[in-house]
Simulated scan of single mutants.
Amino acid sequence: MWVEDWTPRAACKSATPDQLFVRGAEQNKAKQLCSGCPVRTECLAEALDNQIEWGVWGGMTERERRALLRRRPTSSWRSVLETAREQQVVSPVSQTAS
């Protein structure tokens, strides 16, 4: 299920911008904050659809997001990620049976 108003549920809601808008190795710490976030997918879609250039969003750095945007520049990332999430929820058994 897609969460429209995702920001109040974000794992980083109490983090300071200094924790999320970092460079280099510090980005790995910021990405760890995202790892268990219940709205990680919504956050990433927001950053990709709005081409947000700075900070860690949805567990991805600026460089990682730019790579995705180059591959699919006209995609609706919300649709892409929502569909991927639904497919993962529907068939987790078939993935492990292979």
Rank of each mutant, 00 (worst) to 15 (best):
C43P: 00
S91H: 13
D49N: 10
R72N: 15
E86T: 08
K13R: 15
L33Q: 05
G55C: 07
C37Y: 01
F21P: 01
Q87H: 08
D49E: 06
M1D: 13
A84S: 09
S91L: 13
V39C: 03
Q27N: 05
E4M: 09
L69W: 02
T74V: 11
Q88A: 12
A97Q: 07
V56Q: 01
W2V: 12
L48K: 02
R71S: 12
S14E: 11
M1H: 09
I52M: 08
A47E: 01
Q27H: 03
A67C: 11
P17C: 02
V22H: 03
C34N: 03
S79D: 13
E62C: 11
S91I: 04
V56A: 00
C12M: 13
L81W: 01
L81N: 02
T7Y: 05
R23W: 06
G55Q: 11
T83Y: 03
P8M: 12
R78K: 13
A30D: 10
S79Q: 13
G55D: 04
P17E: 15
V93P: 01
W6H: 06
G24I: 00
V39G: 01
W54T: 15
E4P: 06
R71Q: 14
W6Y: 10
T83Q: 10
A47M: 03
L44I: 08
G58L: 01
A97K: 07
W6S: 10
Q27E: 12
T7C: 06
R66Q: 13
W2H: 15
W2L: 05
R72W: 05
T96V: 15
E64Y: 03
N50L: 10
T16Y: 06
G55V: 01
C37T: 04
W57A: 01
E42G: 07
A84H: 05
W77C: 01
V80P: 10
Q32K: 06
E62H: 03
L68K: 06
R70W: 12
R9A: 11
V39T: 02
A10S: 12
S35A: 12
W6P: 07
A67E: 11
K31V: 01
Q51K: 15
P73E: 06
V39K: 00
S76M: 10
Q95H: 11
N28I: 09
N28W: 05
A45Q: 00
